[in-house]
Amino acid sequence: MANDIKSGREILNIFFSEINSLKVPDKEAVAVIARLFKEGKLSDINVSNELAELRKRKQNDKDK
């Protein structure tokens, strides 16, 4: 049993390395979250800013 128990860090590493396989409508948003975690920058402000940037980029792409 003791060997099955994972630390918080282990769970986080596994989770964020696997989120790209989730069935979601916005894969790029998932990639943003995974990247921020990997860089140690997963915070409220960074997520909000990056998702806003992503929306702006997608809006501009769709407008073309």
């Binding site: 989730l22 069935k23 916005d26 998932v30 992503l54 929306r55 809006q59």
Partner: peptide, 16 residues
Amino acid sequence: KEAEIIKDQVETMETI
């Protein structure tokens, strides 16, 4: 389109 983009993000974040 903006509404669609943001709703997709909401759905994505909720799934995560």
